[in-house]
Amino acid sequence: MTSINVRVDGASYSDDVEPRTLLVHYLRETLGKVGTVVGCDTSNCGACTVHLDGEAVKSCTVFAVQADGSEITTIEGIAGGDGALHPVQKAFHEMHGLQCGYCTPGMIMASIDLLKENPSPSETEIREGIEGNLCRCTGYQNIVRAVQQAAGEMSGATGGQA
């Protein structure tokens, strides 16, 4: 067991973990942060995407011990303190960017990361920006629209109908 200290969605935690514990399992099973999910075992699907010190990572491909001393944000921590949805969450709802919703937490976290780096991506840049996340329901088109809409809102422009 190794001791780790992490901040997750704004709260501090100290825990002993087995080194082999994946970050996603720590989040789900130790902290009860079940909003972040596991979809594969080869780092392809991106369902487990969280932000580790501000960067999107696949939490199934990081050991919890590696997150020691880090700040982690999950899908459960991106809404405002007043519960107001993050613009990307709102846009996924508005543009019907989800169906079963299983890929959605990872998709939203990857999209936020993309928009941080590229605030007004083209359609191609969006599609390539979320290439690390698989969705089986939507065919991606409404996810792309959602990211476009969120980009508009976050840059202060009027969210356009795609």
Binding site: A56, V57, V62, D113, E131, G132
Partner: peptide
């Protein structure tokens, strides 16, 4: 190489 999440790590 891979995708943005993988490229971060």
């Amino acid at each position: 190489v891979a995708d943005r999440q993988v490229r971060h790590r």
